[in-house]
Design a protein around this nucleic acid. Structure first.
Ligand code: MN
Ligand code: MN
Ligand code: ZN
Ligand code: ZN
Lengths: 130, 130
DNA sequence: TATCAGTTTAGAATGATTCTAAAGTGTTGA
DNA sequence: TCAACACTTTAGAATCATTCTAAACTGATA
């Protein structure tokens, strides 16, 4: 709790009640993938009612400070990922199935990068079926 | 034009005026990535005004018949791809830059597929910066 | 050419996300 | 300690891509 406050301060974020609750949930040591909606639901289960606007604000604040990654897997919701290491995903849209691939993956045979551009990140999504 | 009609018929799609125009534009031999909006704009330039509802309907009809691929690269619009071969992409969200990687890419070091699931498709997105 | 299933369309609805602006709160310097 | 203020939260409105509705239209068929 004081660790969380320090953690927030060290990221130039005021430790408000809401941010403390959200950070406490997100950064509890287990990797998580959340959407604004799923986060709201989880917090509500724990009797922490925080407005959706604040949940969106906070996810973005954390993202902008590098505490979360953003995943675009489906067109109709954004996932935030507490695992900020370089990693990839198994994903099944139909089944809402999303898990990390933390093993080192190598992508071979890439053509040369287009002129005047530079690779920012290589993202591998392994789409699964039942 | 009659080729297009035949092409549509052979995919169990009635060759309506609108579908003929859209297919004529999309399947002209050059690979394209379009959104509903960009397609509407391109057709308008060519003096073909087709309602957005029909553009969405048609893109989905074509997609469902395997004539297009769907790409989820950004959370706020869906791209359709006329290149239906297995392939990957260079992408820059900021610059609206999206091009095919047709070269064979190999992804090595994948962990084993989760139990009772099967790999449907492996998608590699190379995110670019300026 | 009549019939009908399939198609198109305007406009309304949806739903995730963002915006607005007013009220609340953490920080800080005196 | 506390006033002052910048930062934050929030309800509710707005946005915007996409989907839906239901009425008019049209391609296929006999
Ligand atoms: Mn993850
Ligand atoms: Mn949406
Ligand atoms: Zn992850
Ligand atoms: Zn492509």
């Amino acid at each position: 709790m004081n660790d969380i406050k320090q953690f927030l301060r060290s990221n130039a974020l005021r430790p408000t009640k809401q941010r403390i609750v959200i950070a406490g949930y997100l950064f509890d040591g287990t990797d998580k993938h959340v959407t604004a909606e799923s986060l709201s639901t989880e917090l509500a289960k724990r009797k922490h009612i925080i407005s959706l606007a604040t949940i969106y604000n906070t996810l973005h604040d954390f993202y902008e400070n590098g505490l979360l990654k953003k995943l675009t897997l489906s067109a109709d919701r954004v996932y935030f990922d507490t695992n900020t290491d370089d990693h990839h995903h198994f994903y099944s849209e139909k089944e809402q199935f999303l898990i990390d691939i933390n093993k080192n993956i190598k992508v071979n045979g890439l053509p040369k990068t287009p002129r005047n551009k530079k690779i920012n990140k290589i993202e591998v999504i392994v789409h699964l079926d039942k």
